[in-house]
């Protein structure tokens, strides 16, 4: 099922949580909504589910306008951040709930509901736990039951709110791989919310980066990491360094010298240069480079992180060097960013 979010705005008591957000989700896709808290990612998920109504704009499921439909009519599977399992029901009753509350002929007989619950428990690898109560399960098991319950109603779209937020790192990684497998097997269009970039980049087909109620960038993990389209994405995803520069005649200048990068299409004047600390080319001589004095040097896992003071203003930037690289011993290092981007000065 394709989902199309068209110019959606959402206000809570006049306070805007989403400004004019549009997003196309392809059928069968696994999409991550990634952003810091307060970025509107959960609000967007709840709008798609029908737990909230948009102030403006529409949401389409396929060609149907779903914005006016209630959550029951939308037929979405929603997995809540804290699972919201019904504590007084067994695992099997939790999973069967969505079928039990159906009306008339669409409601399967009790035996069929039990069979389906067992099937789904097999799918989420919890066979045999039908009679347990939620309080008797571990966090990871509850998470799986919540997913099985959401899938029991054969939803058009599967929506997960911080699905791994409450679990410890080990279980998290395990469940991440497992969710990917389930998704590939069942082919549900799936949207999940996370504030963990590693999770988003590893798991999702496409990542939607959000900030302050807006979508900053939509793309694959490669797109997002290699070509961030805003200072926010540069700063939020992975490591980044930035320097204030000037553009003159299509050349980039740092203070009074050119650094050997040309930006023929950039507007003249003040700008900020962004690059990844690990994506730099070290130079020996310096005719067109960024040169700085080593201010600090730290060993970080397999690399050495070097902090440089640049120019008269003593701007600090970080770059990464291979551990054995001779430049790490020197007091002065010259380099040029490999992949970089200019943004207008803030």
């Amino acid at each position: 099922m394709e989902v199309r979010v068209a110019n959606v705005r959402k206000e809570f008591e006049r306070f805007p949580a989403l400004h004019d957000v549009s997003l196309d989700i392809k059928s069968g896709e696994l999409i991550a909504l990634l952003g810091p808290s307060g970025s509107g990612k959960t609000t967007l998920l709840r709008l798609i589910a029908g737990l909230e109504r948009p102030t403006r704009g529409k949401i389409f499921f396929g060609d149907d306008d779903a914005s006016q439909k209630s959550i029951q009519e939308r037929n979405v599977g929603f997995v809540f951040q804290h699972y919201a399992l019904f504590r007084h029901m067994t695992v099997a009753d939790n999973i069967g709930f969505g079928l039990k509350v159906r009306h008339g002929s669409s409601r399967p007989p009790a035996q069929e509901i039990r069979r389906r619950a067992s099937e789904l428990l097999d799918l989420v690898q919890l066979s045999g736990l039908e009679k347990r109560y939620p309080a008797q399960l571990s966090g990871g098991q509850r998470q799986r039951v919540a997913l099985a319950r959401a899938m029991a109603i054969e939803p058009k779209v599967l929506l997960l709110d911080e699905p791994f937020g409450a679990l410890d790192a080990q279980v998290r990684r395990e469940l991440r791989r497992w969710l990917r497998e389930i998704h590939d097997r069942t082919g549900h269009t799936t949207v999940f919310v996370t504030h963990d970039q590693e999770e988003a980049l590893e798991l999702a087909d496409r990542v939607v980066v959000m900030s302050q109620g807006r979508i900053e960038q939509v793309g694959t993990a490669d797109d997002i990491y290699d070509t961030p389209n805003s200072p926010f994405v540069y700063g939020f995803i992975g490591e980044s360094s930035s320097l204030p520069v000037k553009v003159e005649n299509g050349e980039i200048w740092l203070a009074d010298r050119p650094i050997g990068l040309s930006a023929p299409h950039a507007p003249e004047g003040e700008a900020t240069l962004y690059f990844r600390p690990h994506d730099v080319e070290l130079l020996d001589g310096c005719s067109g480079c960024i040169a700085g004095t080593v201010a600090a040097s730290r060993r970080v896992a397999g690399t050495r992180r070097v902090e440089l003071e640049i120019g008269g203003e003593r701007q600090r930037v970080e770059i990464e060097l291979p551990v054995g690289h001779p430049a790490a011993q020197k007091s002065r290092v010259a380099f040029r960013p490999g992949r970089w981007k200019l943004f207008p000065a803030a």
Partner: peptide
Amino acid sequence: NGDEEAALSLGANGWQ
């Protein structure tokens, strides 16, 4: 509200 929202998302009406 979590449990109630979960029930609604599973298709239950208000009374159920």
